[in-house]
Design a protein around this nucleic acid. Sequence first.
DNA 1: CCACGTTTTCGATTCTAAGGCGAAAACCTC
DNA 2: GAGGTTTTCGCCTTAGAATCGAAAACGTGG
Lengths: 213, 213
Amino acid sequence: MRQGSLQVLLWQRALAPHSGRWSLPGGRLCADEDVEASIRRQLAEKVDVRQLAHVEQLAVFSAPDRVPGERVVATAFLGLVPCDNDPELPNDTSWYPVEALPDTAFDHEAIVLRARNRLRAKLSYTNLGFALAAPEFTVSALRELYSAALGYRVSATNLQRVLSRRGLLEPTGHTAPPGPSGGRPAALFRFTAGGILVTDPFAVLRPPGSARA
Amino acid sequence: MRQGSLQVLLWQRALAPHSGRWSLPGGRLCADEDVEASIRRQLAEKVDVRQLAHVEQLAVFSAPDRVPGERVVATAFLGLVPCDNDPELPNDTSWYPVEALPDTAFDHEAIVLRARNRLRAKLSYTNLGFALAAPEFTVSALRELYSAALGYRVSATNLQRVLSRRGLLEPTGHTAPPGPSGGRPAALFRFTAGGILVTDPFAVLRPPGSARA
DNA sequence: CCACGTTTTCGATTCTAAGGCGAAAACCTC
DNA sequence: GAGGTTTTCGCCTTAGAATCGAAAACGTGG
């Protein structure tokens, strides 16, 4: 989340093929690492994004002609950077809004769209939002974050109650200063610890008599 | 679904490493195919499972030591065989209940468990069940299928209503003959066409005033 | 310092959809 | 035709999300 919109970190290719186009960070898998270790290493090498709040496998992209001249199979990952973490970026690296991508290399546009869809889906049934938010946040800020990521406006009232009911949200006791035009100071919240929690993947067709603790 | 339980197709390895153990069907990726084409080819070569009702990527397994002596990165797939399709099996191939796997090779047990979890999750919020069911089925048969796959008993009444409400189920007009002990003849249903439909991945936090068409 | 606009928060109500129960329907066998 | 079996359907309950509006807590400007 950057400047009110969902953005993706791209870097401009210097070498052929597709030199000059923008691509997702990545690189080759080494002998002593699995794919997740590899993508974390690639990110740490090229940009200062060592604290990814969340990393998960997205999909394998393996069309034989996806990279001209060479057979390359890519395992795509979805990684989330908290909005309060603004890493130093090299010149050839930049954030781009997911809805307005530049000229991308290979099949990376398709990968980005897939990642966006995965994020949208998971936002609603997990607490994945915590990976995008700052450690402490107001409900309004969280609402803007969800709205931008989901692509439609969500109700702040409902967002707070849904997340609270699920036990994902807890008040910190602090309050944020009101804006320049006044207004009641907003209470600050944080997500409860415990990593990604799937709210209820089997939401429907539950076992009988399981009134959901 | 075989004999009332969720089963997985395994074949017994003839060569080292792990000779004699049971493994998931698979093989090497060729130059002119993507991973999905590859897994379909592997299945068609080794067993008569050409009509998979559903195939989807599961995850990449890439621990450096997952296969001794050689670096092998595997893209695991989840494929579903309808319960009315009983393919001819070679001698070294067999169905095994997911809950009672034999001695498996490599990390294949973990892969199977991951696949089972994915199936369970998707059964509740997609119409993926159609890929396990016969073209026409009774609600009772569908209930048994869901119960076995999910691992707990579901109510036939509720199952029918939930699926119908979502527009995933439609009556064929035919009826199945009653069992040997009598009983009202069951109506036959089919899943509505249209491939896999995600019921509502954004189930919560919907756009305002969207009462779900 | 007091009325007014602003923003957040909280409670009450409505609405949707799943869960549960029992009666009725449609078949068998004896 | 009586009794047992299985399926089907309607009604009711319950949970949780959506909506609405009032109250709280702050600024600003007269």
